[in-house]
Design a protein around this nucleic acid. Structure first.
Lengths: 242, 242
DNA sequence: CGGCGCCTTGAAAAGAATCAAGTCTCGTGG
DNA sequence: CCACGAGACTTGATTCTTTTCAAGGCGCCG
């Protein structure tokens, strides 16, 4: 267990809310260890009832649902600071799968300790609900984008979101952020075909707005990219870290 | 305040989880009154920070987001038993609007009392998180449907969901359930145009699978309707009532 | 009676999916 | 060391689902 809650590098970021000394102490006990997932590994499976919950420390992954006909809907991307397994924790089973895209390091919590959190740490319980509500909000945004916008706007929106979020995580260097996903992942998240996604990315490249290659997204015209998508609120909103 | 928590008609339903005597007592104090919204009324506005939270007792409504370009995405339908305002309660402001479609009666709670709930009623706090997670799950389902399925499957899925949910609420009489929405509402929820929605409904009617007219949905072939959509899990799952 | 909201239907236009190759990189094994 | 295959990215051509445009009908309320 290399990373101590007391010195958690994520909590230092402006993106995340502060925590009282008491809360940090509690989290330190709540955290039972660390877990490293290799690229391509399934962390939680849809329908599974995990006895562990996680918070992503490093690396990226994705959440997805598999439909009967074999198609896949990506319902979210897991970035450092994201909580994993809440549905399993409160509803008994996961409603989507979570897979590591890159190598991921995660804090591990015991589901059985969750009840103690609700009983003794009302503030943390509130934060957990906050996280759930934030997740709901994000899905609502995605739904609005997937349901109402055309291909170009969808792609621009998702790239812009990545750019802003990764920047907030301190991963922006010269308008470049790491983006280790495959085009198929983006396509499955926006409800587009791989081919159409590819062609739309090519257009953005051609326009000189943004380039995504070799797992790196370069945004040349942040303003134009934002205009093409739709201004999602909650850009700078701080969120609790679990 | 006509409806007492002690004799809440919703809690009698199998759909909702039981509550301890102590919890009922707490809820009774938590509930500060009732509110009736007339058809077409906006109950909560996107971006607003409401000092009240609600639970729908009677009637139906819908949740929606308005995009810059004027288009609208319906992100959910409010049916009896649904909690309204959770985002406002924990995140400070609503991320979507809520509008009454029919006349609606709602239990009213004070947002300022929410903290007491977290402090003194861990079980209720857990349930609230459960509600948030359920909401997240539903949005995930919707996203998968909107993102991956074609028009016919989308319409079949949403009609089937209404049919099952309203049946669980005891509103099914002879395979007929009340469905007081407009076609435009369904179209906006599934990311389809009004015209296409209309034509798809006509097809379902022609096939003799389901008929929706005069605010009443009649399902002639429940099995076929289910086959056309996609089997959403959590059909009979009980949920907490707030 | 007139207007408005909602439902219905046909025809044309367009955006996106599908089909079909072909390229490039990288890791593996002969 | 190089051939080979897998996986991901590109691109052009074709097909088709869905949208947009247009118009008419029906029921209800002032």
């Amino acid at each position: 267990m290399k990373t101590k809650c007391e010195t958690c590098p994520l909590r230092q970021l402006d993106l995340f809310e502060d925590m009282s000394r008491d809360e940090v102490q509690f989290m330190s006990r709540f955290k039972t260890g660390e877990f490293v997932a290799q690229p391509g590994t399934e962390i939680l499976a849809e329908g599974a009832s995990s006895s562990h919950l996680y918070t992503a420390l490093e690396g990226m992954g994705l959440r997805y649902k598999t439909l009967e006909d074999g198609s896949r809907q990506v319902v979210g991307f897991v970035l450092p600071g994201d909580f994993i397994g809440l549905q399993s924790g409160v509803m008994g089973e996961m409603k989507h799968s979570v897979e590591a895209t890159t190598r991921m390091t995660m804090c591990v919590f015991n589901r059985s300790d969750l009840w103690e959190l609700f009983r003794n740490q009302p503030r943390r319980a509130f934060d957990l609900t906050h996280v759930a509500a934030t997740e709901e909000f994000l899905l609502g945004e995605m739904l609005a984008v997937v349901g109402q916008m055309d291909g170009m706007a969808k792609i621009a929106w998702v790239l812009n979101r990545f750019f802003r979020r990764l920047t907030a995580l301190g991963l922006n260097e010269n308008d470049q952020v790491p983006l280790p996903y495959r085009q198929q992942d983006i396509a499955d998240s926006m409800g587009l075909s791989l081919v159409h996604t590819n062609k739309t990315l090519a257009k953005l490249r051609g326009k000189g707005v943004a380039t995504w290659a070799n797992d790196v997204l370069t945004v040349h015209r942040p303003d134009q990219l934002a205009d093409l998508g739709y201004s999602t609120g909650l850009g700078a909103a701080r969120r609790p870290l679990i």
